[in-house]
Amino acid sequence: MRTEFRLSGSGGQGLLLAGIVLAEAAILEGKNAVQTQSYGPEARGGSSKAEVVISEDEIDYPKATDPDYLLALTADAYKTYGPLMNSGLIIVDSSVSLDAEIKARTLSVPILAAAADTVGKKVTANIVALGVLGGLSRLATRDALRKAVTARVPKGTEELNLKALDVGLGLAAQSGTPAGSLK
């Protein structure tokens, strides 16, 4: 079964890294994974989108066609990609006000706030988000996610990021959303 993730926000939020780690965790679980991206010319700011497709089978098409999960960390991202969602789940940061026109099932999660307050570093929002996506999709175990995080984050920040991962997994558990594909 093919599961598609779209991680969107602003350049510099580290969503590409979150996508890579999610894909690597899936590979550690023996699954196939493909990660793609689109980005503007800006290194910081501007729009940023990373996509991850995870499947037990061969993945012929690498991009998300009808995402199972949309992560939107900014209002812009929510407004751009939210309307494209069908049966998948939108996970939007609590700082973004919801739009009644966007009909897909939506979960408002305090990802940015949790990174700043609970983890204590705003820059860990991407890994908190990874935890949320990992926890909701259950396509990779906590162990695999931890391994993948440790391998990718800058040396010396492992503990901080593992904490962020757990905070994200915690947010997913609290959301009361059933795990697995929602389609």
Binding site: N32, A33, V34, T36, P62
Partner: peptide, 9 residues
């Protein structure tokens, strides 16, 4: 660009 930037197992 797609082939060169995408990551795959």
């Amino acid at each position: 660009e797609v082939i060169s930037h995408m990551r795959e197992k």
